[in-house]
Design a binder for these strands. Structure first.
Lengths: 338, 338
DNA sequence: TATCAACACGAAACCGTTTTCGTTTCATAT
DNA sequence: ATATGAAACGAAAACGGTTTCGTGTTGATA
């Protein structure tokens, strides 16, 4: 069913090399032969075998994407960006999920590193950031496989990186709440080992300090994972009286809004909310949620571009890595005054 | 940096075949040699090249997933299910997005069909279902590449299929609304060429007819795509007075709920809502949305299992295909009485 | 001492390409 | 008649493995 060069060569009684060259329209081959071969190939729908080409070229035209999760909007938009850009340049995208697990991240990388891909685009699992163990990344880069880290990155590894300015995003959001007249602004975040949460917390602090409001530590709720811990959020709102809330993702924010509404509070009259990630949740929440947009699709595109450029680029003597920082944007919606 | 069998053979002054066998612990090789080779391989971190093995075995251990979109919750859960199951069996997942475009679907399949993957798992793009042109699928199956179709399927192609009983899901939902005492039940759906929308519309009709309420065609709103057409939904609610709404996805439902709320209607006192897809939107909407759960992750797992079983199975003389139908589940939340 | 099996290993084919480097043939120039 | 060169093609190596089928050596057996 699948036809190879060898089959064509046998049928046409020429050599495999001739067939190969004829199909590439080589000057070496006579018009006659080329036409014969090309016609035959078209007739039997010949398509070169990618695997053989990969082996020969030592290039697979596949890029490996290793991310913690796929059901969160931010990561899906990044994948979409990667996929679009990569496809346009003839690359396929192999997606592996670490599910926030260090071991899975390691296993996935090892699976892919043995020839399956030309380079990695990844965002670290929370467990990896917690353990701060990056040997699997080191091994890969030392093998000469290019890596681009996005969003959840580490400075321990020398490679290209793409992030948004999380600190600035949180700063902008907090500033906006302050400008609105809010005095008691809470922050719902996760443990600091997540690079992004840490940066966002810093932005939040910075805005509060700059404005002279100061930071009240009891107004900062640190949850242990990105997953919803409904009980702790409930407890938090039982004990805290706040007039604005900044959340490091949209799920925390939307859930918090609901708790507030159930307590009879009006949004944004009594309390304002801002989240991170501009996904469906924010857009269709009631009231709609103001968020710091992370531009995931753009991040994906840029990551893919940086990776492919490196993959296809000549090996320079002096390896040079860059970190691209995207500007976050505040998407104003009904959960704050405007 | 990357070491090959040849390198080991040269260093240890044995043949490549000996190295290969030694690493596989072949009985043919003496204990001494095996230990030497294995120790050397471990020391230099030898890992066989996947591409070479793929070429030899004519098996890539990759499966191609072609889906219309990735930002919708249902598809991401399916991918997650596929990924989990496939990974456990040593397969990687190559994700391609058709973005609801026929051409992209064709191009992606052709890219992958030339040796990159052992089989396909796919859900048809809306454009493909609209054109009803399935030649790209036929070509692939005729080449002997196994295909599993899920959710958006067609009967034109002989292959394994996994779906949920969409008609039953809509029937159950509608029935529930009727049992609640609702008389004027609207349906917000998409054009019938989408296999799932068609089935859901049938279930809706069936429940209404069975109960004696009859179908009022003016209460059925058909949008042209899965994307939100805010204007048409607004217009619809301007002209229609209904006491319940069934939507073929959660976005339509959540957006409709908001319109209702903005008109001052109480949910579920004045009007009830049920959607399809049990995602974050439904869970965190206010009020939370009752939905027909599609069990995407399960669908993904089953699809992957069917595909891999077929890929690894002996070629039977008589090809036999099955269609697995999953039962939808009603997830009761606050958008209806309970 | 001849025979034979077991043992340990190597040569080579193969998977499907690409590409370099011949080699043959024939026409042209000398 | 001979040297030269281009045109057209083929042989073979290479990518990195796996696997079949030898083959040389050893020790035991008849």
């Amino acid at each position: 069913m699948k036809i190879t060069l060898k089959d064509i060569a046998r049928e046409l009684e020429v050599s495999i090399s001739t067939v190969s060259k004829a199909l590439k329209n080589s000057e070496e081959i006579s018009r006659d032969t080329k036409e014969k071969v090309q016609a035959f190939a078209k007739l039997y729908n010949y398509k070169p075998n990618n695997i053989a080409i990969s082996l020969k070229n030592k290039r697979t035209k596949n890029i490996g994407v290793v991310i913690p999760d796929i059901v969160h909007h931010f990561f899906t938009t990044v994948i979409r960006g990667i996929e679009k850009y990569a496809n346009a340049r003839g690359y396929n995208v192999i997606v592996c999920l670490s599910e926030e697990s260090f071991d899975k991240e390691v296993i996935n990388m090892e699976m892919l590193a043995n020839g399956s891909i030309d380079g990695f685009i990844m965002s670290l699992s929370s467990e990896t950031q917690q353990k701060a163990d990056y040997n699997h990344l080191k091994e890969v880069t030392e093998q000469g496989i290019p890596v681009v880290l996005f969003d959840r990155i580490t400075n321990e590894i020398d490679c290209d990186k793409v992030i948004i300015d999380d600190e600035l995003g949180a700063y902008m959001a907090t500033k906006r709440l302050i400008d609105e007249g809010r005095k008691k602004i809470a922050l719902i975040t996760t443990d600091d080992y997540l690079s992004v949460s840490k940066a966002r917390t810093m932005g939040y602090r910075k805005a509060l300090i700059e404005s002279g409001l100061g930071v009240d530590e009891s107004r900062i709720l640190k949850l242990s994972s990105m997953e919803m811990d409904e009980e702790r959020i409930k407890d938090f709102f039982e004990t805290q009286k706040v007039d604005a809330v900044l959340c490091v993702n949209e799920i925390f924010a939307v859930y918090s809004m609901r708790l507030a509404q159930e307590k009879g509070l009006k949004i944004p009259e009594d309390i304002s909310f801002i989240g991170f990630t501009d996904g469906f949740l924010s857009k269709y929440a009631y009231p709609s949620l103001t968020v710091v947009a992370q531009h995931g699709e753009k991040m994906g595109e840029i990551s893919a571009q940086m990776l492919i450029d490196k993959v296809e680029g000549e090996k320079e003597e002096e390896e040079t890595f860059q970190t691209k920082t995207l500007e976050p944007t505040l998407v104003i919606r009904d959960s704050i005054f405007h």
